[in-house]
Structure formats: structure tokens, C-alpha cells
Design a binder for these strands. Structure first.
Length: 470
DNA sequence: CTATGGCACGGATT
DNA sequence: AATCCGTGCCATAG
């Protein structure tokens, strides 16, 4: 509401427009590279030194005040999220901690390695003693994300009871990628299964297979497994399919067996979020804090000395410098424009989808990019660019793609999941379709089948047997 | 005969 | 213009 007046003042040149568009579609990571190269090649641009808020230690814009701590409490409705651009070079998941709280951290590397990535997730939950143990555990991961030491050794090394090390391992295992820090593929699978079962239906047979028939499972001995558990071979195959589609034994890789994992997928997992949403003071009653990440320890501006210097420069230099100056000012404007758009976007989105963020997928309101573009009075493609390839970290530390805010069917799928999870006798797709219609979601029978498939839920006739039998 | 999955079409979305 | 998504129709499995 404050920093936005420039917006329509100056006629937008095509260059301006084009560059803003480009910047908008960049993720925080790419943005940082862009800024750095611009900074290196243009003397007129400078990065002003960081200032931190004395209260919460956030990085501040050059003249601004802290948007969180200085927020006027009287006109504050807890519904309205606090949205602001947050320059931060640290990227730690909670703004109220400083880099000093984290051991062994180098300067912010953008593409984290696995241990760093995990440590950042778990650090906020741990005391400094525990953090040391966590860091130690994480330095003993192999490339598959599995532990190379035994917990007992670690406990001995730190002179701690085994149980306390186990507790820390458990926290690590529940971080992304789920199952990391397990001592075996089997353990990793079990953790993933447990996590998965919180949100979806999982066949009861799956756990038994992993727990008791790991050998046969990895050798695809369906007949053998069917015999062991007294079920049909097709059932085993279905469950194995479920396992191979939803679980992965080597958390460090993203999928089964193959080492040739595509680079982009790895990037997807380890990427820093572009937006971080959290509760103020970590209290769910407080308003949401939405930080649009600006991956720098300071703020960009045009070097005021450069302006002066230009006057005294010799003629031949003058021209070159002038163009530098123009480029720099264009760049700064584009950055502002980008941030401005991101802010408006998130403001609206978080305001609308608050219950999705706080109460889960069931409460996602179906919303399209087109609608949003109309409300914000920008072109549809602007929204598309701003949304694509970006990720958001929710208060529960999950990192999800920003595009999931526009998932047309996520809420229906979630309700469907719950219905199936709480069914007493397995319901057929057409029955499910009817029930959904009663709840206000009218979807075709065929669509129910598709949603089921998306959620990895088995068809009715295979559902009951495996879970009842357990 | 019923429940599901495959294919393909048309409209919406990007 | 390209892509995604919900749906209807039909073949197939149980």
C-alpha cells in the first residue's frame, strides 16, 4: 500500500515491459544470479548494505521499517496477511533466528547439498545440543540419503542415551525428502508409509510386505509373497505398484533404482522456496506472514556517487556511463515492478486461501489464474509467469509449488480421500460420485476413477481385502 | 451384469 | 497455439 506509487507514472517502454516479464518468471535462485551478473557488469548499480531489524533480526529495505514488528496493532485484522518483500541471504526457515544459530554453515550457497537442506528444515525444532547431533548425523549420509553410522555409535560419541539420538533421527526422517537419515531402505519406506497414511488411503498389506518380505519385494517375487500372506497374486501386484509409485527406498534419489535421475527433478526438491509463509511468532492465532524472497543481503539502488562522477567524466566516457546509468535505473525499476506484482499476487492469494494454508488441502478454493488476473488487472500471462516454477513454504514447513494454489480439483480429491479412508464397506466409483454430489461436488463417475488413480487408491474390489485382512 | 480402465474429444486454461 | 482436464463411450475383467 505504501511503496507502490511509481507504478503507472512512467509510460512503460517495451524494454521495461520485457525485462519485468523476464524477472517475474525467475525463481529466487535465478533472480539472484541475474542480479549478481547485473551488479558485476554495471558500475552504476550498487547494493546498499544491509540493515537488520533490532527486534526480529530481519533484513530491512534501506529506508523502510520492519513490516512485522512495526505493524500498527490497532487496525490489524488477523485475517489480513502481512505481505512484504524480504531480502534475506540466509533462507532459514524462520525469520526470527539468525545465521549464528546454525552450526557449520558456510555462506549461503543457493543449491544446497542434501545435509544442509535437511538441517535447515529441522534446525528450528531443535535445541543447540540436539542440533549438533543432527548435524553430525547428516554429515554421515551416503548419496542415497541413508545413514552410514549406527545410532549406537553416535550415542556413544556424544555420551547421550540412545533414545535421544533416536528422537532426533525421527525428526530428520520426517523432513523432506521423507525417510532421509534412515539406516536402511526398509526403514525409509516405513517412514514414508507412515507419513503418507496421514493424508491418503494406504493398503494395509503394504506395511506387512515391507516389514516382513523386504527380500521378496526387492526381487519382485509376487508368487512367493502371495503365498506368505495368503492373498492373491494380483493383490500383491497392486500393492507393489502402489509402493513403487508412492514410496522410494533411497531418499537421496527421487525414484526407484535408477541413478540417472533427471537433473531438473533433483532441483525441484532441493530448491529454496520463493515465498515463505509463516505465523507471526509461530502462533496460529496471529496473522500470516508472507515473505517474498529477495535472495540478497541488502537492497539495490543506483549509486549516487556515480551520478556525480558522470558530470566530471571525459566526453568519451560520458556516453558509456550514461547508458550504464540508464540500464541500472531500468533494472531497478523492473525489480520494483516485479516485487510489486509478486506482493499483490500473494496478498490476494493468501487472503483468499488462508484456510487452505492453515487447515489443509480440503479447504482449497478452486481459483484460476484468469480470475486472479482480472482482479489484479494484469494480463493473464503475467500471472502465469509469476506462478510457474515457483515454490512456497507453508507454516508447517512443507514446500509446495505455487501452482497448487490453482489446482482445480485438489479439494474434491481430498474429500474423496477422506470418504474412502472412513468407508466401512468399499464403495464403488459411482457410489462415491453420488456421495460427492450430495456434498456439493458434482463430478462424473469417470472422474472419480481418475482422482482415485491420482491419489494412488486402489479400486473398490481390491481395497477391502488388503486392509480388513491386516 | 457391474465396475473400471483406455482412448479420444471438446472446452477451458495457460 | 499448446496443453490440461473432465467426460462420454466402449472394451474388458471379474
Amino acid at each position: 500500500m505504501f511503496q507502490l506509487h511509481y507504478q503507472t507514472i512512467r509510460p512503460l517502454t517495451t524494454a521495461h515491459l520485457a525485462q519485468t516479464m523476464t524477472l517475474l518468471s525467475l525463481t529466487s535462485e535465478e533472480l539472484r544470479q541475474q542480479i549478481e551478473s547485473e551488479l558485476a557488469s554495471n558500475p552504476a548499480l550498487e547494493l546498499v548494505e544491509e540493515r537488520r531489524c533490532p527486534m526480529c533480526h530481519r533484513l530491512l529495505p534501506p529506508r523502510g521499517v520492519c513490516p512485522v514488528c512495526s505493524r500498527p496493532s490497532n487496525e490489524a485484522s488477523p485475517e489480513e496477511p502481512i505481505v512484504f518483500v524480504s531480502p534475506r541471504d540466509d533462507f532459514y526457515t524462520h525469520g526470527d533466528r539468525t545465521a549464528d544459530d546454525y552450526p557449520d554453515e558456510g555462506v549461503s550457497t543457493i543449491a544446497d547439498d542434501l545435509p544442509t537442506y535437511v538441517l535447515r528444515q529441522v534446525a528450528p525444532e531443535l535445541g543447540s545440543e540436539q542440533r549438533k547431533i543432527a548435524a553430525y548425523l547428516l554429515t554421515h549420509l551416503d548419496e542415497d540419503g541413508l545413514l552410514t553410522t549406527s545410532l549406537i555409535e553416535v550415542a556413544r560419541y556424544f555420551h547421550k542415551p540412545l533414545s535421544s539420538v533416536e528422537a532426533i533421527q525421527k525428526i530428520i526422517q520426517h523432513a523432506e525428502p521423507v525417510g532421509v537419515g534412515s539406516t536402511s531402505p526398509q526403514e525409509a519406506l516405513l517412514v514414508q508409509l507412515e507419513v503418507l497414511s496421514e493424508s491418503r488411503f494406504v493398503p494395509g498389506l503394504a506395511e506387512k510386505l515391507i516389514r516382513e518380505a523386504m527380500d521378496q519385494l526387492s526381487r519382485h517375487q509376487y508368487a512367493e509373497m502371495a503365498r506368505m500372506f495368503g492373498v492373491s497374486q494380483t493383490q500383491v501386484q497392486q500393492v507393489v505398484r502402489f509402493i513403487s509409485e508412492n514410496l522410494y527406498p533411497f531418499p537421496g534419489r527421487s525414484h526407484w533404482g535408477d541413478v540417472r535421475q533427471p537433473a531438473n527433478e533433483a532441483l525441484e526438491v532441493y530448491r529454496q522456496p520463493d515465498v515463505i509463509i509463516s505465523y507471526m511468532d509461530n502462533d496460529p492465532k496471529n496473522p500470516l506472514i508472507v515473505e517474498v524472497i529477495l535472495p540478497l543481503a541488502g537492497t539495490l539502488r543506483i549509486n549516487p556517487l556515480f551520478r556525480g562522477a558522470i558530470q566530471q567524466a571525459s566526453d568519451e566516457k560520458k556516453d558509456a556511463w550514461k547508458s550504464d546509468l540508464e540500464r541500472a535505473s531500468l533494472f531497478v525499476k523492473c525489480m520494483q515492478q516485479r516485487n510489486h506484482t509478486m506482493l499483490r499476487l500473494m496478498q490476494r492469494l493468501v487472503g483468499l486461501q488462508r484456510s487452505y494454508i492453515t487447515h489443509g488441502e480440503k479447504h482449497l478454493i478452486p481459483f484460476t489464474r484468469a480470475q486472479l488476473s482480472r482482479e489484479l488487472e494484469v494480463h493473464e500471462s503475467t500471472i502465469s509467469r509469476a506462478v510457474s516454477n515457483k515454490t512456497v513454504q507453508l507454516p508447517n514447513r512443507r514446500i509446495i509449488p505455487l501452482s497448487s494454489f490453482f489446482d482445480r480439483s485438489l479439494n474434491v480429491r481430498t474429500v474423496l480421500r477422506e470418504m474412502i479412508a472412513s468407508e466401512s464397506t468399499p464403495l464403488s466409483d459411482s457410489e462415491l460420485a453420488e456421495m460427492l454430489a450430495e456434498k456439493g461436488f458434482s463430478v462424473a463417475r469417470r472422474t472419480v476413477a481418475k482422482y482415485r488413480a491420482m491419489e494412488g487408491i486402489l479400486p473398490a474390489h481390491l481395497r477391502d481385502i488388503s486392509s480388513v485382512r491386516a
